[in-house]
């Protein structure tokens, strides 16, 4: 190849690289613009709620802008004490129900999942099919039979109907999620542990569970969110305002008989989602750490 040909080829390669870089930049810019607009559309209701929690009552529905003309911090103080029972009680009630539910769900569902994924027992396939079938039954279908059962047990007006079922591996979604995860773990780990003298429970406790942090964290996050914001369950089983959870308490701001207090309600709504965000941030790290840890080979 002559020097002239080489120089020509080099110039062409340089032109190609510049063109490719320019194209990549343009594509990146378009992608970012699209994502930013979509994100704004998605986050707008939340921002609107945050803004409304700081607006005076008369500006909430009259002014759609996100920046309040005046900041009504008073809404938070008023909201906290607006109801006959303080929000301190409601938050405490929600925390008790949610924390116990999350613990119950994670422990019991992981036990059930471990049994399905690793142990051999008679009727395993049938039990698994039955468990999967419960995924397809809407909650509202079992609501009345469940209510009657808990009424017979004398559990209505207590937290037991909201907590006890969580300790009985009642959520097929979490069980299925964990089964899928457990199945990815090499069986040789169980076998090595068996030779090392582990019982099935010890294998679960010492090997499977620590390696399943991503699945456990995912189950914990979903369980936390669904329990914390559950409205129907507490509405059905709790009658005394002192026992109300946060979603029930928020509902009390909206009254058909009197004027609703939207500012304080939005203020409390904002406070009510803070634990969810906090929980997500903490446990999301566990998911990432868990994924990094389970790189087996």
């Amino acid at each position: 190849m002559t020097d002239a040909t080489l120089s020509n080829t080099s110039a062409l390669a340089s032109q190609y690289r510049t063109l490719k870089l320019r194209r990549a930049r343009r594509a990146g810019l378009l992608k970012h613009i699209f994502l930013i607009i979509t994100s704004l559309i998605m986050i707008y209701p939340l921002l609107w709620m945050l803004s409304s929690s700081l607006k005076p009552e008369n500006q909430i529905f009259g002014d759609l802008s996100l920046w309040p003309a005046t900041f009504e911090w008073e809404n938070y103080w008023q909201g906290w004490n607006a109801l006959p029972v303080s929000f301190t009680t409601f938050f405490w009630n929600s925390t008790v129900v949610t924390v116990l539910s999350v613990i119950g769900n994670v422990i019991s569902c992981s036990f059930a999942a471990y049994a399905f994924a690793r142990l051999e027992f008679s009727g395993k396939t049938i039990w698994f099919a039955l468990m999967m079938m419960t995924l397809m039954i809407p909650y509202h279908v079992v609501l009345i039979p469940q209510y009657l059962l808990f009424l017979q047990l004398g559990w209505v007006d207590t937290y037991l109907p909201l907590i006890v079922p969580r300790f009985l591996a009642g959520d097929a979604f979490f069980i299925f999620l964990m089964i899928q995860f457990f199945r990815q773990l090499p069986r040789e780990l169980d076998e090595a542990a068996m030779i090392d003298g582990c019982s099935p429970f010890k294998i679960y406790w010492a090997i499977i569970m620590p390696l399943s942090l991503p699945a456990m964290a995912t189950a914990a996050i979903f369980s936390f969110i669904w329990t914390w914001e559950d409205f129907l369950g507490p509405l059905v089983y709790l009658n005394d305002m002192k026992d109300y959870t946060v979603p029930l308490a928020l509902r009390m701001f909206v009254s058909q008989d009197s004027v609703s207090q939207y500012g304080p309600m939005f203020a409390m709504s904002i406070l009510s989602i803070l634990p969810i965000i906090l929980f997500f941030v903490v446990f999301q790290r566990l998911i990432i750490r868990g994924i990094a840890m389970s790189g087996l080979k």
Binding site: P186, E188, L189, E191, A192, A193, M194, I195, D196, G197, C198, I207, P210, L211, M293, S294, G295, L296, K297
Partner: peptide
């Protein structure tokens, strides 16, 4: 007898080391 009662050790193809 269970595996642990047989007083033996086994080395696996994939090593089967406990990753955590």
């Amino acid at each position: 007898l269970s595996a642990s009662q047989r007083n033996l050790s086994m080395v696996f193809q994939s090593y089967a080391l406990y990753p955590h």
